[in-house]
């Protein structure tokens, strides 16, 4: 990678689209740029300190808090946000399961949880309950008490294994 990059203009690749970001402040987080410059409001901002997980995105296939990513340092990386989880109007299986189990109340934590759970189930298709709890430990939900969220993960796991057999 070229070491000397012009800071005040950089490019981001988000959900396979390229965006040029210009005239920004050096300290802007990826979360800020997604929401305030690109109008992608799915990733939520609740704490800006990595505690709540509502801003979770995938960066080069790694789950991270976008509030802790310096936006300029996301150049050259593939960003996938909650906006890429559904295929048009076709919901993903995790989204369906959230609806079926009633894992959503106010919905504020839901985008972050969906991104987290998709990542988790891709690497661990048949998780134990304790593993599910550890996987979502970085996503705070103030409404549901987590029971139905855990059920939703289990439901996806069962549905995927039926589908595969």
């Amino acid at each position: 990678m070229d070491i000397a990059q012009e800071f005040n203009q950089y490019e981001l690749t988000v959900n396979d689209s390229r965006y040029v970001i210009s005239g920004s402040w050096l300290g802007e987080s990826l979360l800020y740029v997604l929401r305030e410059r690109l109008g992608l409001y799915g990733s939520k901002n609740a704490c800006e300190q990595g505690e709540c997980g509502s801003c979770s995105v995938m960066m080069d296939d790694v789950l991270v808090c976008s509030c802790l990513v310096l936006a300029a340092n996301a150049e050259g990386r593939e960003i996938k946000t909650i906006e890429s989880v559904a295929d048009g109007n076709e919901l993903s299986d995790v989204q369906e399961a959230f609806i079926d189990t009633g894992a959503i109340q106010c919905g504020f934590c839901t985008p972050g949880l969906l991104v987290t759970i998709h990542d988790f189930l891709d690497s661990n298709p048949e998780p134990e309950e304790s593993e599910i709890k550890e996987a979502i430990s970085g996503n705070l939900c103030r409404c549901t008490g987590y029971g139905r969220i855990v059920e939703a993960v289990q439901l996806v796991s069962i549905r995927r294994s039926r589908r595969d057999t």
Partner: peptide, 9 residues
């Protein structure tokens, strides 16, 4: 430490 997200970074 932290959460999966924090440990990834």
């Amino acid at each position: 430490i932290g959460s999966p997200q924090i440990r990834n970074a």
